[in-house]
Simulated assay, not measured.
Amino acid sequence: MSESDLCFSSSSSKDSSYFKLLELPPDLCKLIENAIDTNTPLRLKIKGHSGDDAVLCTADQTFAVRSVALSNTVLVVTPPPDAFSLNFADESVVIRDQVTEILELTPSVPKLHTLSEILRGREYDDGQQDDESNEILPEDRHKRYTYDEALRNIQASDAELDHGLKNRHILNINGEELLYPSLSILLNNDYFKVNCDPSLEILSSSLADDHEVPRSVSTQVMSWFGTIKDGKWKMEVDALIKEVGLGILRHHQVCRRPGLGGI
């Protein structure tokens, strides 16, 4: 067994607690190894404000990050600064830091509940559409909340966030998030009422021409309550009836269910 001389780095006091060890669960380890083997870029994000417990997000999964104390101290060592120039003639290693804890990752439920509070009072109104700028213009411009902000601040992976936006019926228009309040225009459209599997192009054009509902809105709403395939919309009857029923009952509740505008 080779031997090396140990010495402390001159910057050891500055490097104290600078290094962190991250323990990878098998699934995440396999994901990273596959990215290395296939030379595919892999993007990992750590999210959380100063008062939050941090999470690590892959493209489609969220992991809680927690600190676990180690029973033994782990030393972080490096070769001397001039080791490479001396062709490793110097057998000493430099102690850069001492690690007494490890960061553990465990699968976590995405924290999507904050969406309802963030978007409360931002229900979409057809009258807010500005034809010239094609932007949503809420009464209070300071209440804008963009998709990029949600990606940065909501503790969820990109795929989980997109799924949450769809389930909560939140529109993404020009990068801005708004709750959608009405299905009545869609359900009462004459073309829709006489076609079981209406053409997406014809139905969205009809809604835009007759009711000034932007295609970006109607297409998203149709995707919430059905599937779009080969240019046609296949409605999921049960999901649509359920949402209409909730909208009717919501008017008789003392406390409204957060997350949706009234139908």
Rank of each mutant, 00 (worst) to 15 (best):
S10H: 14
S13M: 09
K20N: 00
C29D: 11
D37L: 03
T40F: 05
R43T: 15
D52N: 14
A54F: 12
A54D: 07
D60P: 00
A64P: 03
V65E: 06
L70Q: 00
S71F: 01
A83D: 14
S85A: 13
A89P: 01
S92G: 13
Q98S: 06
E101K: 06
P110Y: 04
H113P: 04
S116A: 15
L119N: 05
R122K: 10
R122W: 03
D126W: 01
E139Y: 14
R141N: 09
H142S: 12
Y147C: 01
D148H: 08
E149G: 02
L151C: 06
S157C: 11
D158T: 09
A159I: 01
K166G: 07
R168S: 14
H169S: 07
I170Y: 02
N174K: 11
E176M: 02
L178A: 11
L178I: 05
L179M: 09
Y180E: 02
Y180Q: 04
Y180H: 14
L187A: 11
Y191C: 00
Y191I: 08
K193V: 15
D197T: 08
P198D: 03
I202E: 13
S205G: 06
S206L: 02
A208G: 01
D209E: 10
R215T: 14
W224L: 09
I228Y: 07
W233M: 13
V237F: 12
D238A: 10
K242R: 04
V244G: 05
Q253F: 14
R256V: 12
R257A: 08
P258R: 06
L260N: 12
G261T: 04
G261K: 05
I263Y: 12
